[in-house]
Write a protein that binds this DNA or RNA. Structure first.
Lengths: 221, 221
DNA sequence: GTCTATACACTGATAGAC
DNA sequence: GTCTATCAGTGTATAGAC
């Protein structure tokens, strides 16, 4: 069929790519790269399997695109750290942002985790460049707060690892969290409790005063 | 060949099963269940592929045995919680034990993580029974400490999640930790630093006094 | 741009000699 | 108990009609 609108092909491509990427993210998260089958992704996207190969030449191409998307979501959340005035606000907002990602994009978090666990075949370079640079920058910020006496002299690096690990646990291990919650996924109130508990333990653990912790907003719901 | 020693067959079986299980744990951790190939496990174990099927009928049988072993290691570590006299000692020893598992059995931790991330097809029942019972028991212990005023009234459940997540991060994300450590795996001193940092933040975060934290031993090296 | 039919490679599992 | 050869099933990727 002739296309009257010159943009329609591009629109179709974009829509279908989005459909495929969403389905792929879910299937890669649930089955891993090796366990994921193109047929299952196609079925979930509602497209014939051959169309996947039309938009993404190989399974690996598709996987790389999924991982790239997750990395950008992760970088966006990291931005809240910048605009902060101190440890209570900066680290509190960062924990909120990461918890929110775990809640909204659990599949993406799992794909990232599996990628790292399997030796980071795709993201190795990002780890060594973008993530390393970002981490060292944040370590300097935290060291500044320590020098100013606004928090205890703890290891900024291990603090960051603790925040990453704990916030991502609610996504990567959501099945376990659900099982230990009587088989029900966390509801709104339970998510709020989780965020508050994590923030309280971390902020108090690094020496932020109780008054500053109590003054924090609850974060996005 | 006739066996002079009636036990030799059993010994051979046990030796080969151990060889295969060690190789399988590593390969499952690096590639996931779907990505793991019996041929690769056989090569790593130094045995022909057909022998794997002689000792373990199917790939899934082998996988289940690997997961079972990890679960038992996990349960052993949990025992340190029992013998404790209070939060500083109990939680401190538990963190040390979990960190030590991450250091000694990173592959096992990864297999467990991947299993949970993929919806726990094999361990679903353990999550609902053994782990749920253990968790609720530990929550009661922690609630007792809170009632006695020995720590802050934080959520015991989220505290446990934080400990699990953080300690296992050093195993599951060891590749990322290494990349952010200049490409070198953590050495002895860095592991000691990591343990100390995690214990300090967590124990202070839940309201254990500085004096009690300072009085803790360094844990096993 | 869509979709059916199919080629080609790979892998889990087995048969059967030793 | 060990190992080579092989089968059967599955999965990625492509060819080619529409």
């Amino acid at each position: 069929m002739a296309q009257r609108d010159p943009k329609s092909k591009k629109i179709i491509r974009q829509q279908n790519e989005t459909l495929i990427l969403r389905a792929a993210e879910k299937v890669f998260a649930e089955a891993g790269f090796g366990g994921a089958k193109m047929q299952v992704i196609a079925d979930l996207a509602g497209l014939p399997k051959a169309n996947l190969h039309y938009y993404f030449p190989t399974k690996e191409t598709l996987y790389r695109r999924v991982v790239e998307e997750i990395f950008h979501i992760w970088l966006d959340a990291a931005a809240v750290f910048e605009a902060s005035s101190g440890p209570a606000e900066g680290i509190g907002a960062y924990i909120d942002a990461k918890m929110e990602i775990s809640r909204r994009h659990p599949a993406g978090s799992k794909v990232w985790a599996a990628e790292v666990m399997h030796g980071a075949p795709v993201i190795q370079e990002w780890l060594e460049t973008t993530l390393d640079t970002w981490t060292n920058g944040r370590i300097e910020v935290i060291e500044g707060w320590i020098r100013q006496g606004r928090m205890d002299p703890i290891s900024p690096r291990h603090l960051l690892y603790m925040i990453w690990a704990t916030t991502q646990h609610y996504a990567d291990f959501d099945h376990q969290v659900t099982a230990l919650n009587g088989g029900r996924a966390l509801n709104d109130a339970e998510w709020t409790d989780a965020k508050a508990a994590v923030k309280r333990i971390v902020l108090k653990g690094i020496g932020v005063s109780s008054a500053e912790i109590a003054a924090l907003p609850d974060g996005p719901d």
